[in-house]
Write a protein that binds this DNA or RNA. Structure first.
Lengths: 218, 218
DNA sequence: AATCACAATATTGTATACAAGAATATTGAC
DNA sequence: GTCAATATTCTTGTATACAATATTGTGATT
């Protein structure tokens, strides 16, 4: 992998923010990071700008850049948006999906089922990802698919949390079956509705998890 | 306006690309731009990175950054995505819109009608923008609204073209009336459908215009 | 004339130096 | 001791210098 420092560092910083190594409001000190990564401030600054552009951090002129973790409200908004975008992808995909892609979906689902049976959370997660990405692609609109992938990626760390909830994997599986069924039938509105609900539930579960954490902390 | 050079330059470059001062594939030469803006390469590079992040330009490592105007296919995809996002905003707004916002919409519509009557294209354009932005905001989801504004802005130069088509302003007006009616009635699915069609037509008109330009050029 | 090797040049990517504004410490008055 | 004014330090933003890679030009060879 031959890469510019700035890009490598941007990826690394993103990962650090996503995995919670940085808290909301933390200042991303250029000099400290430069020392840490063993480079000068220049590539660090370029990396920081990438974080700012993608909304992970915020820049206050002449003050610095600060990590900006979405709060509960924004998170719920992002989940709602994700649900709607997935619904759109599903509605378009129902009319445009190829037989090969339908087979891919069923294959991913089969692997998911196996993962659920063996309690393989990571495996489930991987195939789940494949499932959703296929739907994005099969929307037949690569711009839309790109936006979907973007947001999906942004929500990754939060979605991952709620997957550990008891029974969630099994429920999610059932929803996947419904989705494939609608797509196979070419039932666009039904596909949209089911997908919207599927992702919407993720948001709900996440909200539940958050309020629980809040009350536990008090 | 107190601003960092990099930000000011990024805005200027965006404008230059949007207004067609640069063509697709043009290299954005750092040194040339530095001289042109009377600054060093550093703020130029930061500005270029912003363009890359927002998809206006593309960066090839060790080669430079090149402006990347969307081709016909990507443009149609972007219009379709815009149509779907507006539909989503409308569907949500139908359930969440306030009376005050409804009044705003009708006010904007009234001003639009006046502009149509007096042939004031710019005025029409301004109030049309206000109309759509209000719907985004009234989706009650500021994240979604932000995404909508983003794409709306990106499509601005292309939308503007098709507005000059004969009779388009009047037709657009009629569609606006339908939209307000649906929102007022709280008819979410109808609002979604009407908005999707409204924006979809823009894409169609634009495609038509493009093919005409192509055949004319041959 | 075409093509390949290699040198010269130009451009990007990174490091360092400097300038300007913000945060912090210090001093002095009350 | 508190507060304000000012000096100091620190950090960001910009300019310049240097390193590494890509492009271009030149010449020899076929």
């Amino acid at each position: 992998m031959d890469m510019r420092h700035a890009d490598r560092i941007a990826d690394a910083l993103e990962e650090l923010v996503f995995t919670g190594q940085f808290n909301d409001g933390d200042r991303l000190d250029e000099i400290r990071l430069a020392k840490q990564f063993g480079v000068s401030r220049t590539p660090i600054r370029e990396a920081l700008q990438r974080l700012v552009a993608s909304g992970i951090a915020e820049q206050l002129p002449r003050r610095g850049v600060f990590v900006r973790q979405p709060g509960p409200v924004e998170l719920m908004e992002m989940f709602e948006t994700m649900a709607e975008i997935e619904a759109v992808c599903g509605r378009l995909a129902a009319r445009r999906i190829t037989d090969a892609a339908l087979a891919d979906l069923e294959h991913a689902n089969a692997l998911c089922r196996e993962a659920v049976a063996s309690g393989d959370t990571d495996g489930y997660y991987r195939e789940n990802e494949r499932f959703h990405h296929t739907i994005y692609t099969e929307s037949g609109n690569s711009y839309l698919a790109g936006q979907a992938v973007r947001l999906h990626r942004r929500l990754k760390p939060f979605r991952r949390l709620q997957l550990r909830l008891r029974g969630r994997m099994a429920q999610s599986m059932a929803e996947h079956e419904e989705i494939v069924s609608a797509l196979k039938a070419g039932a666009d509105e039904r596909a949209a509705k089911v997908l919207r609900k599927h992702v919407g539930i993720q948001g709900e579960k996440f909200r539940h998890l958050m309020t629980e954490l809040r009350t536990a902390a008090q």
